[in-house]
Design a protein around this nucleic acid. Structure first.
Length: 644
DNA sequence: GTAGGGTTAG
């Protein structure tokens, strides 16, 4: 059957996901003067404006070519822009429409533009639009009013949201759902519960709102109770549980729910897949990640940017930067700013600063515009690879070329950059002079630099500031005590330890995980003597004595806290969780495989030395992810070049 | 021919 040009465009538009396709359709439309058809042009603009990186400008240009856009076309552009990275543009377009045309906004216009105000978190703008809708007699329109409720909640104004809801004479289920969501958004859990109880009717979404609300508030148990109570569950219910549980740090349970989802006869969707992949990334579950990768390819989820981006990140956080890069390369036309930034972060974590810098330039030449997070990653890459000059260059470039105002995170990266490079005074001055009030993280970064370079005097000054901001943070005390220990100031070590005991500050326990046969094993310092721990301890004894004889190992006792007897100190470091996990790996894994360990804290100097020696004496490759980066040990060397 | 409430990546 012959299709006419309009039908062809419409069918092409149905699954149009890339800028290339949009351009193709535009070519057909232009040739056949279909661009004057408001349906085609409107759809085109909408599709190109939404979530396709770099297409926003294209959409606006396209819009300008339309001779006299009608309200439908304007609405489409306003909607596209409201969901973009710059929702302000949506408001500007609306203002322009009012100024330049005689078009009257309708209920659609208000629904979209109020959403823009919500996304932009602009309370002032939202109030003005609320008034405008009143002027046009549309503020009572059910759809508009529901958006007003959500807008006020997004802007943090629960009382106005509540008022807008209470004025509705006959709220339907969507309006009820909106007000419950509003309570959760504003942190009013009690209010959400009360309103949920009062709802005259509920649909599945109402229940899902409760799940998501509790999860985002960190209330996992109530969410689990509700989930168990629900008679009907859909994809969203399952995805919400998996994502929520994972983000609340219960990785094992996230895997469990994912397995349950499958055995309940449901198919994972892209959201549950990103959730479970995210859990793999956190846990360093490389083997399970690979299994999921297979499923993703087979089921066709590889085309989805969010899934591929998460997969990339998972490989990266599991220590396999090569696989991460492969996933990145496979996303030929799909890459967005998140993909580029994730790849940069991946290089950065693995100490490949030069590669990250090169990637940044490639991104620029391919026309992708970096955002604030991209710059955090590239600055992190520079500081972790000692690229001082490059880092300073990027910090200027983000402001001069891209007009991005540095946030506290960017300043933190700069402090880290100067600090790691040994320019401690410069780092200190930078903190004093920065236009934002430094927070605890900034000072902690500087304290970390003092620890690397052994500057006791500056460390004491910095710790004083930290004591004002966050007096009970255990890691600050531990870090200061370590600085004293390395400098041999045992009396000061004791005094820090004593003040910790007096204030009942406990060091967060270190743990390390390793995956063997797709099962994760967790090792915690000084915890338990079950079969697995025993096995690891015995193997570790053997390893330590072998690296002592064959590798010339001398324990670095500065890494322990207390001024205890030398032999005891040696014992305490030798039982660090990462050592146990690696020993367990050597005991269980096949020769030739890579030992991948994830640790929750920073690796200590002694463990770092031991890992290098094991990689040399035992000829195993060890990939250790600690709190801040990756260490790849091979033939007695570490990828971080002892710079962490 | 466009809408309002719930889950997704750096």
């Amino acid at each position: 059957m012959m299709m006419n040009a309009k039908q062809r465009c419409i069918s092409l538009l149905k699954d149009c996901k890339t800028l290339q396709n949009i351009k193709k359709i535009q070519a057909i439309a232009t040739k056949t003067s279909l661009l004057n058809d408001p349906f085609i042009s409107g759809k085109l603009i909408l599709l190109s404006a939404i979530s396709i990186s770099d297409a926003l400008q294209y959409a606006c240009n396209l819009f300008l070519e339309i001779p006299s856009p009608d309200i439908f076309t304007y609405n489409t552009l306003i909607r596209g822009l409201s969901e973009s990275n710059s929702p302000q543009q949506s408001l500007l377009t609306y203002i322009e429409m009012r100024r330049k045309t005689i078009l009257q906004p309708d209920s659609f216009s208000f629904a979209f533009i109020l959403k823009a105000a919500a996304n932009y978190k602009s309370l002032d703008g939202g109030i003005q639009l609320h008034c405008q809708s009143l002027v046009h007699g549309l503020d009572n329109h059910l759809f508009v009013r529901t958006t007003i409720v959500s807008m006020y909640a997004e802007c943090g104004c629960i009382s106005s949201a509540r008022k807008a809801f209470d004025e509705l004479s006959q709220p339907n289920v969507v309006a009820w759902n909106a007000i419950v969501t509003a309570c959760f958004r504003c942190g009013d859990l009690k209010g959400a519960e009360v309103l949920f109880g009062r709802m005259p009717f509920r649909d599945l979404t109402s229940w899902n709102i409760m799940l998501a609300g509790y999860m985002k508030a960190g209330e996992v148990e109530p969410a689990k109770r509700i989930f168990a109570e629900m008679s009907a569950k859909d994809e969203v219910s399952w995805s919400t549980m998996i994502v929520g549980i994972a983000h609340n740090g219960r990785l094992d349970e996230a895997f469990e729910y994912f397995r349950e989802l499958n055995s309940a006869g449901m198919r994972p969707n892209e959201v549950s897949l990103t959730g479970v992949l995210w859990a793999c990334a956190q846990a360093g579950a490389f083997e399970f990640g690979k299994v999921l990768h297979g499923y993703i390819e087979k089921a066709g989820f590889g085309m989805m940017v969010s899934v591929s981006n998460t997969l990339l990140d998972t490989y990266s956080r599991c220590g396999n930067v090569q696989m991460a890069h492969l996933v990145f390369d496979w996303m030929i036309i799909n890459k967005n700013i998140v993909s580029w930034t994730s790849m940069m972060a991946s290089f950065a974590m693995h100490g490949l600063g030069k590669e990250a810098v090169q990637l940044f330039h490639n991104m620029e030449s391919s026309g992708v515009i970096p955002d604030g997070i991209t710059f955090i990653c590239i600055l992190y890459a520079c500081s972790h690879a000692g690229l001082l000059k490059e880092g300073i260059g990027f910090f200027h470039k983000m402001q001069a070329t891209y007009g991005i105002e540095p946030s506290i995170e960017h300043y933190g990266c700069m402090v880290d950059l100067y600090g790691r490079s040994g320019l401690l005074r410069k780092a200190f001055e930078f903190v004093i002079e920065m236009p934002i009030e430094p927070n605890d993280i900034i000072w902690r970064t500087l304290l970390g630099a003092c620890s690397i370079h052994g500057d006791v005097t500056l460390a004491e000054q910095v710790k004083e500031r930290l004591s004002e901001l966050d007096p009970t943070n255990p890691s600050d005390h531990v870090l200061l005590s370590n600085i004293y220990a390395v400098a041999g100031k045992w009396r000061d070590v004791v005094s820090v330890r004593r003040s910790m005991t007096d204030q009942n500050i406990k060091k967060s326990p270190g743990w390390s995980m390793i995956e063997v046969d797709k099962i994760m094993y967790n090792f915690v310092v000084g915890e338990g003597s079950n079969g697995v721990t025993k096995e690891a301890q015995e193997k570790l004894m053997e390893i330590m004595s072998r690296i002592r004889i064959e590798g010339g190992y001398i324990p670095e006792v500065g890494s322990v806290l207390r001024d205890i007897e030398e032999e005891e100190k040696e014992n305490a470091v030798s039982l660090h969780s990462e050592k146990l996990a690696v020993a367990f790996g050597i005991s269980r894994l096949c020769r030739g495989s890579v030992i991948r360990v994830v640790k929750n804290l920073r690796v200590c100097r002694d463990c770092h030395v031991v890992m290098k020696l094991i990689s040399k004496v035992y000829k195993w490759k060890i990939v250790l992810r600690d709190r801040s980066r990756f260490h790849s040990f091979h033939e007695g060397q570490c990828s971080c070049q002892d710079f962490w």
